[in-house]
Design a binder for these strands. Sequence first.
DNA 1: GTCTATAGTTAGATAGAC
DNA 2: GTCTATCTAACTATAGAC
Lengths: 201, 201
Amino acid sequence: MPPSAKAKITKADKTRARLIEVATRLFQEHGSGEVTVRRIAAAAKIEAGSIYYHFASRDEIMRAVLESGVGGAHEEVMQAIAKAGPDCSPLERFRAALSAHFKYTLRRHFSSRMKEIRRLPKRLRDHHMKQEREYAAVFAGLLKEAQRKGLLRPGFDLPVVRMLAIGALTWAAEWYDPAGAKSPDDVADELMRVLTGGIAR
Amino acid sequence: MPPSAKAKITKADKTRARLIEVATRLFQEHGSGEVTVRRIAAAAKIEAGSIYYHFASRDEIMRAVLESGVGGAHEEVMQAIAKAGPDCSPLERFRAALSAHFKYTLRRHFSSRMKEIRRLPKRLRDHHMKQEREYAAVFAGLLKEAQRKGLLRPGFDLPVVRMLAIGALTWAAEWYDPAGAKSPDDVADELMRVLTGGIAR
DNA sequence: GTCTATAGTTAGATAGAC
DNA sequence: GTCTATCTAACTATAGAC
């Protein structure tokens, strides 16, 4: 099914997309293990049995949520980097990437922290982990570029720094209050300020 | 049940403690929603029915795990701060607190990120959130002290900085590999270096 | 494509023996 | 205190009507 020119969007495509969307949100809000097929169906306004026209099993929903989630984040982060432009500093682009990651996580209610991944058949689990590595490589590449250009102080373990930074935002999606005074960009900016300059005098 | 002088440790106390310990680990490893009472029992080497001699319900196990988890972390963090001594810089004590938080999280396999908290009866949920706030206040107090003493650059939102920092470590407990080259202290130190001085030139 | 009805399984929880 | 046996409810998944 190549999504080329003539890809017509059927009713099934729409329902399937809606199911993935509500499942993503429910998994994130209540924890993947807590969410039943019945609840997903109810949230998508169809009956439980109808789910199985679109997905072969609950695990298959899970898989679709993960693929769509990581894939979507990857895409938006790449776009944000492209928008920042190839001429601006790698740290500027890193900031744009972090911000896009955070905003996507908040908007789509997606986080790849679902523990149930372990329960997936090895084939699907490997595919997900590959997708995650490719996504992480985007951030890693920007930090390496910054290092090459001499923008960083020496002595940091960049993979660790990268994971700490992304982790801070992944976790921020848990406590961030959209009704509060701060915008998602404010949070991403604050992280970037801490990250680049530090808080101490 | 005041745990005063004559607090004799019964067999029940030991079994209960073991149940909390294995439940904490299972909740963290597989996600709280995925873990059944039967699995907790199996991991603690007793039969499923016997659990109900120690806990009235699955939610009650959950509650005990949360209380013991946050309580234990609070205690160890306070000890680490005390050990650092009241004379050292508040940022030094903050570092000690972060490190203790991380090490506790890793050792006890505890993280308070269980989504199932929402499902708990309001009374228990409120109690948990109060405990969490008290715990967070320890870290907040150290940052405020640093600010008062003029150790910080101006313009930071300290609650946000605090949550980003703790979040980075909470998430680090997910990806940290005990078999790897880095010790938990290495990770906490790296975070503290980034936090205080920043990575950029 | 979505529904209703239901089979088959497994979960949380209880009762009573030991 | 712990076990075995079991109840009831809820879950995943299927079948067949529309």
